[in-house]
């Protein structure tokens, strides 16, 4: 099981869309993925330490070093392959690199 932390400003629209898109697409590609959607301001070092991959909308400064792989997922929000597929591919490569 790969745990992904999706985050956006309000924790309500974008991060939830990224959560459902990642769970569906990574599931289709044969990976068991669980994704949580939160507000950026609620993230701390302890929270992020419980996840394998960080999936923000755009480059995000959390005020501390992030020690897990980061995949910027904003382009997924467009819901068209031209934008979303490169992100899915990068996510898949990142999952593989975890060696879980």
């Amino acid at each position: 099981m790969i745990k992904i932390l999706a985050a956006c400003g309000a924790g309500v629209n974008s991060s939830h869309q990224i959560k459902s898109a990642l769970e569906q697409e990574m599931g289709n590609r044969g990976y068991e993925v669980q994704c949580d959607a939160v507000m950026v301001k609620d993230i701390n070092e302890d929270m992020i330490s419980h996840y394998d991959i960080f999936a923000p909308i755009a480059q995000t400064d959390l005020g501390f070093n992030i020690n897990i792989p980061i995949v910027d997922c904003g382009p997924i929000l467009y819901r068209i392959p031209m934008m979303a597929d490169p992100v899915y591919n990068q996510m898949e490569e990142t999952i593989k690199s975890l060696g879980k």
């Binding site: 309500v12 629209n13 974008s14 939830h16 869309q17 459902s20 959607a37 929000l77 467009y78 819901r79």
Partner: peptide
């Protein structure tokens, strides 16, 4: 987007982009 139900099935942002 006004959304008081983030866990609900209907994702308004997804609908707008669609």
């Amino acid at each position: 987007i006004l959304n008081n139900d983030p866990e609900g099935q209907a994702n308004l942002l997804a609908m707008i982009m669609e």
